[in-house]
Measured scan of single mutants.
Amino acid sequence: MIVFVRFNSSHGFPVEVDSDTSIFQLKEVVAKRQGVPADQLRVIFAGKELRNDWTVQNCDLDQQSIVHIVQRPWRKGQEMNATGGDDPRNAAGGCEREPQSLTRVDLSSSVLPGDSVGLAVILHTDSRKDSPPAGSPAGRSIYNSFYVYCKGPCQRVQPGKLRVQCSTCRQATLTLTQGPSCWDDVLIPNRMSGECQSPHCPGTSAEFFFKCGAHPTSDKETSVALHLIATNSRNITCITCTDVRSPVLVFQCNSRHVICLDCFHLYCVTRLNDRQFVHDPQLGYSLPCVAGCPNSLIKELHHFRILGEEQYNRYQQYGAEECVLQMGGVLCPRPGCGAGLLPEPDQRKVTCEGGNGLGCGFAFCRECKEAYHEGECSAVFEASGTTTQAYRVDERAAEQARWEAASKETIKKTTKPCPRCHVPVEKNGGCMHMKCPQPQCRLEWCWNCGCEWNRVCMGDHWFDV
Rank of each mutant, 00 (worst) to 15 (best):
C260I: 00
E322H: 05
D262Q: 04
A405Q: 09
A291M: 14
G213C: 07
R75F: 13
H303F: 03
I44T: 04
G355D: 14
G152R: 11
Y147S: 02
C95I: 13
L187N: 06
C241K: 01
I66W: 06
Q326I: 07
F362D: 04
V330G: 03
R128N: 13
K211A: 14
C293G: 01
A91L: 12
F208R: 00
C260N: 01
V121Q: 15
C441G: 02
L26S: 00
L174R: 02
K27P: 01
A397D: 13
R396S: 14
M434A: 08
F4L: 10
C360F: 02
L226Q: 01
E374G: 05
P247N: 03
A398M: 15
G429V: 08
D460W: 02
K369M: 10
L287W: 00
D18P: 08
R314V: 03
V224N: 09
H373W: 02
K27F: 00
E49A: 02
P216F: 08
E395G: 08
L26V: 04
D460Q: 15
R140W: 11
K299M: 06
R314H: 03
V330H: 05
I411P: 08
H265F: 14
D60S: 10
Q40G: 10
V67S: 00
C360K: 03
T415I: 11
G450W: 02
S131M: 11
D346C: 08
V465G: 15
I69C: 11
Y147M: 03
G340P: 15
E353K: 09
D346M: 09
V70F: 04
T217V: 09
Q71E: 13
C436M: 02
E221K: 07
G340I: 04
Y318C: 03
E309F: 10
Q440F: 15
S131C: 11
G361M: 08
S296H: 01
L112E: 14
Q347D: 12
C323W: 08
P137H: 12
L123T: 15
G336M: 10
T168Y: 08
F304G: 02
H303P: 01
D280W: 07
G118I: 02
C421D: 02
D184W: 04
P294Q: 09
D184S: 09
C446Y: 01
N190F: 08
Q440D: 15
S22C: 09
R128F: 12
C263D: 00
H11D: 05
Q326Y: 06
Q63P: 15
K211Y: 15
T237W: 03
Q311I: 05
N454G: 02
P73W: 04
F13W: 05
E28Q: 11
Y143G: 06
K76A: 14
A82C: 09
F251P: 00
D274L: 06
C323F: 11
K416G: 07
S145I: 04
K408H: 10
T231L: 06
P417C: 11
W74T: 13
G284E: 03
Q178T: 14
A339W: 09
D115K: 08
G357T: 15
I66Y: 10
E309W: 07
C268Y: 02
C436Q: 00
E49M: 02
V224T: 12
Y315A: 04
D53M: 03
Q276M: 12
R275N: 02
E399S: 14
Q316W: 07
N232M: 00
H11M: 04
H373D: 02
A383V: 10
L341C: 12
Q197G: 10
T414R: 13
D280C: 09
N235P: 02
Q317E: 11
E370R: 04
E221A: 06
N58T: 10
K161I: 15
D106H: 09
E395A: 11
P73T: 09
Q158D: 00
G430S: 15
R455K: 15
E409S: 09
V248E: 01
P113L: 08
H265I: 07
V324G: 04
R245M: 05
A82E: 14
N295C: 05
N428Q: 15
A134W: 07
D464W: 03
V224K: 13
L443Q: 08
W183N: 01
A383F: 13
Y285M: 04
T231G: 09
D460G: 04
I239H: 02
L283Y: 13
L266S: 10
L443C: 05
L358G: 15
T83C: 11
T237F: 05
C323D: 15
N254K: 14
Q347Y: 07
D185S: 02
L41T: 00
E370A: 07
V164N: 04
K76C: 14
P199Q: 09
G12K: 07
S22I: 03
S110K: 12
N454C: 05
S181P: 01
T168I: 09
P132V: 12
T414G: 09
V456F: 15
D243L: 13
Y312A: 04
Y318L: 06
C150T: 00
F463Q: 01
F210A: 02
V393Y: 04
R42A: 14
G355F: 10
T240N: 14
D185P: 01
H68P: 01
P99K: 14
A134R: 11
E79D: 13
D126I: 05
V15M: 06
C182F: 04
L261P: 02
K408P: 10
Q440N: 15
R392P: 11
R156D: 12
S110R: 09
S127E: 14
C289A: 00
T83F: 14
T351G: 04
S9G: 04
M432H: 06
R140V: 11
R271W: 03
C268M: 05
F4W: 13
F304K: 00
P113Y: 09
L61F: 08
G152Y: 15
E221S: 09
F362S: 05
C182D: 11
G194W: 02
F364D: 03
A138L: 12
V43I: 05
H68N: 08
R104Y: 09
F304E: 01
Q282S: 13
F4C: 06
H422W: 06
K412S: 12
F277V: 04
S110Y: 06
S108P: 13
T410P: 08
E96P: 11
C293E: 02
S101V: 09
S22K: 14
S296W: 03
H303E: 01
S181E: 12
V5R: 01
P37Q: 10
S109R: 12
R420I: 11
T237I: 08
T173E: 12
T351A: 07
E367Y: 08
Q400G: 14
T173R: 06
T414C: 09
P333S: 04
P99E: 15
A401G: 07
C154Y: 01
I122T: 15
Q78G: 13
C377Q: 02
E321C: 07
R170T: 06
A320D: 15
K408W: 08
R156L: 06
Q326N: 10
G355I: 11
R104W: 07
L341F: 08
F362V: 05
I229G: 00
G77Q: 12
E382H: 14
R191L: 06
L119E: 15
C169A: 01
G135D: 13
C263G: 00
G357E: 13
C421A: 01
R420F: 15
I239F: 05
D346I: 10
S167H: 07
P333E: 03
N190T: 07
T415V: 11
D185A: 00
R75C: 09
V70K: 02
G194C: 05
G292I: 02
P73I: 06
S255V: 07
Y285C: 03
Y285S: 03
V5F: 02
S218N: 11
C95H: 11
N235H: 09
R402Y: 03
C449G: 00
I69S: 00
A46Y: 05
Q282G: 05
S378P: 13
Y149G: 01
G203M: 02
S9V: 02
G114I: 08
G152V: 06
Q71T: 09
Q316N: 12
C332V: 02
C421V: 02
G357Y: 12
C332R: 03
S193A: 12
Q100D: 13
G12M: 05
A371Y: 10
T177A: 14
K299C: 05
E404I: 13
V121S: 15
Q40M: 09
N81F: 15
V67K: 00
H68A: 03
Q63T: 11
I69M: 08
V56D: 00
S378C: 13
P133N: 10
I66L: 07
C323Y: 13
K161P: 00
H302V: 09
I44V: 14
M434I: 12
D219M: 08
D262F: 03
G354N: 12
G213S: 12
L307N: 04
K32A: 15
S127W: 08
S407W: 07
G357H: 13
E322P: 03
G430I: 04
A214H: 07
